[in-house]
């Protein structure tokens, strides 16, 4: 007598789509002349922290500029207008979060 196999269903929503596009982008060799996006979520001292990071970076390279975004809510993504500024005006961004 052969036992019937037990069938179990996958409980997940499956793998993320477009995983190949989610790979980390290559890191720039230099920040020379680049515009950095600085995205603070507004919790704790996230804005001050990012300002300090920027100050440190500009001490090493004064050709860097910044676009600062302070999220209007700590709990959701930046506003569409802020996304537009980040994607059109910056070449890389640093997001700071925390509580």
């Amino acid at each position: 007598m052969t036992n019937k196999p037990l069938i179990g269903l996958d409980p997940t929503s499956g793998p993320l789509a477009r995983t190949d596009e989610r790979a980390l982008p290559s890191r720039p060799a230099s920040l020379d002349g680049r515009v950095l996006g600085l995205v603070a979520n507004g919790l704790g001292e996230s804005k001050l922290f990012l300002d300090a990071v920027y100050e440190e970076l500009t001490r090493e390279d004064d050709t860097i500029a910044a676009v600062r975004v302070l999220k209007s809510s700590v709990s959701v993504a930046p506003e569409p207008a802020d996304w537009a500024r980040l994607t059109s005006e910056t070449s890389l961004a640093i997001a700071g979060f925390g509580g």
């Binding site: 036992n3 196999p5 037990l6 069938i7 179990g8 269903l9 996958d10 409980p11």
Partner: peptide, 13 residues
């Protein structure tokens, strides 16, 4: 729609 998997027995599952 979920993918179905076959298992030898309860412990295997």
């Amino acid at each position: 729609a979920a993918e179905a998997h076959a298992f030898r027995d309860e412990e295997d599952l």
